[in-house]
């Protein structure tokens, strides 16, 4: 806008017959269209409102704190109230979760939905760091979606594992270790290679040329059947995995199996008893079981 050659305020616009504000842009003048007075009062009212708002509600930041307002209002307190209300609503269901048996929870669609929702949230907070958000696990941390369960896949077995953990130090925790056959000098390196190839052959994986199956079987019978069983199908009492299936906790390639036999394995799962209440642990067990339907 060029204010230097502005039209005089109040000039009559020839086309409309109305006065102008005197503002002009390249010859285009602004018509004087007064607003109603209540409009400007409304505007002042909003200013007063904002000042009142500063006084009534927390508003201004101070060095360490902030002004608290007349009623000490805090949105955090509001959230606490809302959460308390929610807890009250859920209270009955939560109580039912801690008293009902796992089977009953599973049979009651409302309780099952509740347990799954709760279990999912708790799983995300506590279990996902090791097992992954989708419970798919990773090397050394079992996938909980499949049908292969180290310590058993029934509702009760899953519940027990969550409560006490594995090699967690809890008195009732799952125990049982894979011996470090190489390190302890029980098997010589070439024997380990042989037994590793034998293990691969159990699930139909290819073996290295010149592998002596009979020698492997002999070594296996002498050293491994105690835990993994004569049929090599594992033993959930000891957490000994099934070696005949398609699921491998650490890996099925020869090098990994050799590493496993040489150094042993002893994955740790913490015990959640005492850290989470019974209802929560039950919810988690039901949730984990529902991922793949357990076994």
């Amino acid at each position: 806008m060029n204010m230097a050659d502005h039209a005089p305020h109040g000039e009559l616009d020839k086309v409309t017959g109305r006065t102008t504000t005197g503002h002009e842009w390249d010859g285009i003048q602004e018509l004087n269209t007064p607003l109603p007075r209540w409009w400007v009062w409304t505007f002042y009212a909003t200013i007063v409102w904002s000042i009142a708002y500063w006084i009534v509600y927390p508003a201004w930041p101070l060095v360490k704190d902030h002004t608290t307002g007349w009623f000490n209002y805090s949105s955090r307190a509001d959230v606490a109230v809302e959460l308390a209300k929610l807890d009250a609503i859920r209270g009955g269901k939560m109580a039912a979760l801690s008293t009902a048996s796992l089977e009953d929870i599973q049979k009651d669609p409302a309780l099952l939905a509740m347990a799954r929702a709760k279990g999912k949230a708790v799983f995300g907070d506590n279990c996902a760091p090791c097992h992954g958000t989708g419970a798919t696990g990773s090397k050394g941390f079992p996938n909980l979606n499949d049908d292969d369960w180290l310590w058993g896949g029934s509702l009760d077995q899953i519940m027990k594992t969550i409560r006490f953990g594995a090699r967690s130090g809890h008195a009732e925790a799952h125990e049982g270790q894979m011996l470090a056959f190489g390190k302890e000098g029980v098997l010589k390196p070439d024997e380990i290679v042989t037994v590793a190839n034998y293990v691969r052959s159990l699930s139909g994986l290819p073996t290295r040329p010149g592998f002596d199956k009979a020698a492997g079987e002999k070594l296996f019978t002498e050293n491994c059947v105690a835990c993994h069983g004569e049929d090599a199908k594992g033993n959930p009492e000891l957490g000994a995995p099934n070696l005949t299936d398609k699921i491998w906790l650490y890996g099925s390639d020869e090098a990994t199996i050799i590493e496993t036999v040489t150094n042993g394995r002893a994955g740790v799962m913490p015990s959640w008893e005492g850290r989470l209440d019974t209802g929560t642990i039950k919810a988690m067990a039901v949730y984990v079981h529902s991922l793949g339907g357990g076994k």
């Binding site: 305020h9 109040g10 086309v15 017959g17 109603p36 007075r37």
Partner: peptide, 22 residues
Amino acid sequence: NKTVLPSELNPDPDGPLYVAQK
């Protein structure tokens, strides 16, 4: 076909930018 608002009839050229509701 000009547009005239009730508040604009004969606005005072030097008057305020706001007008009372008629």
